[in-house]
């Protein structure tokens, strides 16, 4: 469970609605990123279903709080609420000037421990999402090309520069032309698609900002997939700073 790490803002796809005239690839990608940061705090209940190659499903449920501070640094608290054997396990992540502070709470041991920063390429809680997939991408670390424009989407081909911290050689993004939300993403290793993300059930979480309510990440090579479903989400209420503390980490979901 130490592998949990949420580098939000904006869990996963984020996404907007105001129509823009600017149509270059860089401008589209910048706009997605800019809108992504408009969500300053969010409380979300999430269900994660991990489906293996035999079709067996494991289910995780979690509560996620995120907040972007005045200094543009993100705080997040993840508390697992199911299944029962991991209930109460929590991870607190606070971005600081000297790097991420991460504290893990294991309720069985009643102990809060600091952990080292996670590798962005590691899988999140055994799912098909890596921490990189769940975090934001800095448009400045990629070169973008507008591949084509379809009826509903801009199709961008983004490739990492040396500044990018990514495990992929190339990502092809489908971005909603109306909402500037990521509808789909194909992740490449060389010229081979290794994973596919499909987003649906979009919700306007604050005026002009749309987020997916369901995300399906398919591991093409291994025939597996993970489905993330937001069962509830509140982006309109500012979260208190004292929720992102060791005190709350030990309380788990109590009072949240």
């Amino acid at each position: 469970m130490r592998l949990l790490r949420f580098a939000l803002p904006g869990l996963l796809a984020v996404f907007l609605a105001s129509p823009l005239l600017a149509q270059s690839a860089d401008e589209i990608f910048d706009e997605v990123d800019r809108r992504q940061r408009l969500v300053e705090s969010q409380r979300a209940e999430i269900q994660m279903e991990i489906v293996d190659e035999q079709g067996r499903t494991r289910t995780r449920q979690m509560l996620l709080l995120t907040k972007v501070g005045d200094d543009d640094r993100t705080q997040s608290l993840v508390v697992f609420t199911a299944p029962a054997d991991i209930r109460g396990t929590g991870l607190l992540t606070i971005e600081t000037a000297s790097g991420d502070e991460q504290k893990l709470y294991l309720p069985a041991l009643r102990r809060v421990q600091r952990i080292a920063g996670s590798n962005r390429g590691e899988r999140f809680a055994g799912s098909d999402f890596t921490y990189e997939d769940l975090g934001s991408r800095d448009p400045d670390a990629y070169t973008s090309t507008l591949f084509r424009t379809t009826d509903d989407a801009f199709v961008l081909d983004i490739r990492p520069t040396e500044a990018a911290d990514t495990a992929y050689d190339r990502i092809v993004l489908g971005i909603d032309r109306e909402r500037y939300a990521i509808l789909r993403a194909d992740y490449y290793d060389g010229n081979t698609v290794v994973k596919r993300l499909r987003s649906s059930d979009f919700e306007e979480v604050i005026p002009g900002v749309w987020q997916a309510g369901r995300l399906v990440m398919e591991d093409v090579a291994n025939g597996r997939q993970t489905v993330l479903t937001f069962t509830s989400r509140d982006s309109g209420t500012a979260l208190r700073d004292d929720l992102f503390t060791e005190r709350q980490l030990q309380r788990g979901a109590t009072g949240l």
């Binding site: 000297s98 502070e101 991460q102 421990q113 600091r114 952990i115 080292a116 920063g117």
Partner: peptide, 12 residues
């Protein structure tokens, strides 16, 4: 004491 200053090593 506990410190993650020497990331990726945590000392306790």
């Amino acid at each position: 004491f506990e410190t993650a200053l020497l990331d990726p090593v945590v000392l306790r």
